[in-house]
Amino acid sequence: MIRVAILISGSGSNMLRLVEDMTGDHPARPVLVASNEPAAGGLAKAAALGIATLAVDHRDFPRDRPGFEAALLRPLLDTRPDIICLAGFMRILTPGFVDRFAGRMLNIHPSLLPKYPGLDTHARAIAAGDTEAGATVHLVTSELDSGPILGQARVPVLKDDTPQSLAARVLTQEHRLYPAVLRRFSAGDKTPVMLGSEGLVRGS
Rank of each mutant, 00 (worst) to 15 (best):
I2R: 12
R3Q: 12
R3L: 05
R3V: 06
A5Q: 05
I8E: 05
S9G: 06
S11F: 09
R17Y: 00
M22N: 12
H26V: 00
R29T: 13
P30R: 15
V31G: 07
V31M: 10
L32K: 03
V33R: 01
A34C: 13
A39R: 08
A40D: 07
K45S: 12
A47N: 14
A48P: 04
A52D: 15
L54M: 03
L54F: 02
L54T: 06
A55W: 03
V56M: 06
V56R: 02
D57Q: 05
F61V: 00
D64Q: 11
G67S: 04
F68T: 04
L73I: 01
L73G: 06
R74W: 03
L76Y: 08
L77W: 07
L77T: 09
R80G: 12
G88D: 08
G88T: 00
R91I: 03
T94A: 07
P95F: 07
G96K: 10
D99H: 06
D99M: 02
F101E: 08
M105C: 03
L106S: 05
N107P: 09
P110G: 07
K115G: 08
Y116M: 00
P117I: 04
P117M: 00
D120C: 09
H122N: 12
I126Q: 02
A127H: 03
A133Q: 08
G134N: 01
A135G: 07
T136A: 12
V137N: 01
H138M: 10
L139D: 01
T141C: 10
Q152D: 10
R154F: 08
P156T: 06
V157G: 09
V157F: 09
V157D: 06
D160A: 14
D160E: 14
D160C: 03
D161F: 00
Q164E: 15
S165T: 15
L166E: 08
A168S: 10
V170Q: 14
V170K: 15
T172V: 11
T172G: 13
H175W: 09
Y178A: 00
P179R: 05
R184S: 14
F185D: 14
A187N: 11
D189T: 01
K190C: 15
T191W: 04
T191N: 13
M194R: 15
G199E: 12
G203W: 12
